[in-house]
C-alpha cells in the first residue's frame, strides 16, 4: 500500500535534478567574487603594508603609498553621508509615517525610482553643472560629495522606508491609542525599532559611495596632488580614480601596485559590509516580536 511507485521514482529524480541545477547556479554566482578576491590578493597582496597605506605616492605615482587617495575617499564619503543621510532619512520618515497615499506622494515615489535609475555619468555631469558651476563650489570635495549624495539618496530613502515599514503597525496603533502624537510615536517607538535597518542602509551606502569613480572625476577628484586636502573646498585624490589612473594612464607602474590599490578599495568596502551585517545581527538579536 505504501510502496514506491514508478511515478514516485520519476518525481524524485526530477526533484533531485532541479535541486542540483539550482545548487550549481548558486555556486556559479560566488565564483566571480572568489576569483576577484583571489586575483587581487595573489597579485597585489605583496605590496600591502602599513607604509603603503600611510605614505604619499612617489616617482610619478609608480612607487610609494596611497595615503592621499585613501584620505580623499574618506573625505568624499563623509561629505556624501552628511548630506544624504539627514535628507534621506527625513524624507523616508515623511513618506512612511506622515504622507497619505495621494498623487503628491506618488509623484515623489516616481521621482525617487527615476533618480535611482540615472546612470552615474549623468550624475557626474549634473554635479558639474549644479555644484561646480552654479553653486560655485569649484571642483572640490564638497561638490564631489554632494554629487555622490544625490546619487545615493534613493538608496537611503528606500532602505530607510523598508526599515520603517518593518516596524509592526500594532506598535503605532498602541501609541496613538494612548494619545501619543505622530512625532512621539516616531521618536519613542518607530525609530528605536528601525534604527538597525537604517544604519545598515547607511553603511551599505558608504561602501557603494567609496567605489564610485565617474561622479567624482569631474567634480572634485584629481589625478595627482602633492599635498593633502585642507578643507571641503579643496580638490583631492581618491582611491577609485587613483586606481583608474595608475592602471591606464601612467606608464611604468609595477604590476602589483594597481592590484594593491584595488585590494585596499575592496577591503574597505567588504569591511564596511561586514560591519553592517554584524551590526544588524547584533540588533536583530535584541528585538523580539
Amino acid at each position: 500500500m505504501f510502496a514506491e511507485s514508478s511515478l514516485n521514482v520519476r518525481n524524485k529524480r526530477i526533484q533531485n535534478l532541479f535541486r542540483i541545477l539550482f545548487l550549481i547556479m548558486t555556486i556559479l554566482l560566488i565564483i566571480p567574487v572568489v576569483a576577484i578576491l583571489a586575483t587581487l590578493i595573489a597579485k597585489g597582496g605583496s605590496i600591502i603594508s602599513i607604509d603603503f597605506l600611510f605614505t604619499h605616492p612617489t616617482n610619478g605615482m609608480t612607487a610609494g603609498g596611497i595615503f592621499p587617495a585613501l584620505l580623499g575617499t574618506v573625505w568624499i564619503v563623509a561629505v556624501a553621508l552628511l548630506a544624504s543621510v539627514p535628507l534621506g532619512v527625513a524624507a523616508a520618515i515623511y513618506l512612511n509615517e506622515y504622507a497619505g497615499d495621494n498623487w503628491f506622494t506618488r509623484i515623489i515615489q516616481l521621482a525617487i525610482i527615476n533618480l535611482a535609475g540615472v546612470p552615474s555619468i549623468v550624475h557626474a555631469l549634473f554635479g558639474v553643472g549644479a555644484f561646480v558651476i552654479f553653486f560655485g563650489f569649484g571642483t572640490s570635495i564638497l561638490a564631489a560629495g554632494l554629487t555622490l549624495a544625490i546619487m545615493t539618496l534613493p538608496v537611503v530613502i528606500v532602505s530607510t522606508r523598508e526599515s520603517l515599514r518593518a516596524v509592526p503597525q500594532a506598535f503605532r496603533e498602541a501609541c496613538w491609542n494612548m494619545g501619543a502624537t505622530r512625532w512621539q510615536t516616531i521618536r519613542r517607538v518607530v525609530l528605536p525599532n528601525a534604527v538597525s535597518g537604517i544604519l545598515t542602509g547607511v553603511i551599505l551606502e558608504v561602501s557603494r559611495t567609496a567605489g564610485e569613480t565617474a561622479p567624482i572625476m569631474f567634480t572634485g577628484a584629481v589625478f595627482f596632488l602633492p599635498f593633502l586636502p585642507q578643507g571641503v573646498f579643496d580638490q583631492t585624490m581618491a582611491l577609485s580614480l587613483h586606481l583608474f589612473v595608475i592602471a591606464t594612464q601612467v606608464p611604468g607602474v609595477p604590476e602589483n601596485l594597481p592590484f594593491g590599490v584595488a585590494l585596499v578599495l575592496i577591503a574597505m568596502v567588504l569591511l564596511m559590509n561586514s560591519i553592517s551585517i554584524a551590526f544588524r545581527m547584533y540588533l536583530r538579536g535584541k528585538k523580539k516580536w
Partner: peptide
C-alpha cells in the same frame, strides 16, 4: 484618547 482607552484583539505591548 486619554479618557477612552482601547484594548485590541491581538495584545500589542510595545517592545
Amino acid at each position: 484618547r486619554k479618557q477612552v482607552g482601547m484594548v485590541f484583539q491581538r495584545p500589542n505591548p510595545l517592545p
